[in-house]
């Protein structure tokens, strides 16, 4: 099935039921390719479903996906017309190690250093708002969606907080996807990690609220405008219920999740539900770094960039030689 997907448009032509198969094939392709052509491995496996879901739901490259760091973009490159070139990944003159606008129109911004995705994507989202305003809505068809994908490891960088802070004060429709695998290269450290863990405990509340709000909107009982106003009240209510403030909602960024980042159908459905909502929003995903490759799941730090390995057994060449 993967061989029929030359570009994301081909992916979007498939029925949603086909997506788990696409994910499975994409994952195997990454495992096979990177066994002999070493690269950032475990991160790419962790976002296979997210990558497929994003290109399925959003109209890329018109819609913008901004990867943070970009070492998780192997799947993204394979799905965006670079499958045949993938053996050249990271080689002189071949595909670049990270997304690069000089390489593909699907790569929206410079990648490599952590924590810049929210700021960059916010710039794009605000620019698009501005265009819509200047065009006075005459060209709304052209409105772009902008999605920033940031890992919990990058969330500890100060720039990410600067971006979040500004996202709450400038009109925009940015979607931030927090890919939370509790890892950067090593395990994530610090208060943010504990904080994100605690957020999981309030997931039932988030689910109930999300479904309720969606139901009301569908019934025409809740306009997007009114929902904005309710949000502040809602935040206080939630803080009261779970005994803590949600940092994102405290910044007026609507928080959704956590969602299982490896259930591609659920991901697609969630993304479809929230993508047209006005205002900045954040979807919190729970993923496993190295997902689908036992050796990498077991030892994600080593398999962040494992060198060559046996795609069947998971044994690393380096270990065998030693």
């Amino acid at each position: 099935m993967l061989s029929d997907i030359k570009l994301p448009a081909d992916l979007r032509a498939l029925p949603i039921e086909a997506l788990p198969q696409v994910c499975s094939e994409l994952r195997q392709e990454i495992i096979r390719e990177m066994a002999n052509n070493p690269g950032h491995f475990a991160s790419s496996l962790g976002v296979v479903e997210l990558t497929v879901a994003l290109h399925y739901v959003f109209n890329t490259p018109h819609d913008r996906i901004v990867w943070d760091v970009g070492h998780q973009a192997a799947g993204h490159k394979i799905l965006t017309g670079r499958r045949d070139a993938f053996p050249t990944y990271r080689h002189l003159g071949g595909l670049r190690p990270f997304p690069s606008p000089d390489e593909s129109e699907y790569d929206t911004f410079a990648c490599g250093h952590a924590s810049n995705s929210i700021s960059a994507a916010l710039g794009m989202a605000v620019a698009n708002e501005l265009k819509v305003k200047v065009l006075k809505g005459e060209n709304v068809k052209d409105e772009r969606k902008v999605v920033a994908v940031i890992g919990d490891g990058s969330m500890s960088g100060g720039l990410a907080f600067e971006g979040l802070n500004n996202a709450s004060s400038t009109p925009n429709n940015l979607l931030i996807i927090l890919n939370d695998n509790n890892m950067s290269i090593d395990r994530s450290v610090g208060g943010m990690k504990h904080y994100l863990h605690q957020l999981h405990t309030s997931s039932l509340y988030n689910k109930v609220r999300f479904r309720l709000a969606n139901g009301l909107v569908r019934l025409g009982m809740l306009s997007d405008n009114r929902r904005q106003k309710i949000l502040r009240f809602n935040n206080s209510l939630k803080s009261l219920l779970v005994g803590q403030q949600n940092i994102f909602e405290g910044l007026n960024i609507r928080y959704f999740g956590p969602v299982d980042g490896h259930n591609v159908i659920e991901l697609v459905n969630t993304l479809r539900q929230i993508k047209d909502m006005k205002g900045p929003k954040l979807l919190h995903l729970h993923t496993v770094k190295g997902k689908g490759f036992k050796a990498a799941e077991k030892n994600p730090t080593v398999f962040h960039a494992p060198g060559k390995y046996d795609p069947e057994t998971g044994k690393r060449l380096e270990d065998i030689q030693n």
Partner: peptide, 21 residues
């Protein structure tokens, strides 16, 4: 756009704006 005291963001945000023309 007043981004507050956030120099890094001011620059990267500008990069994002420039990306959209």
């Amino acid at each position: 756009f007043d981004v507050g005291i956030a120099e890094g963001h001011a620059v990267t945000f500008s990069g994002g704006l420039a990306k959209e023309g």
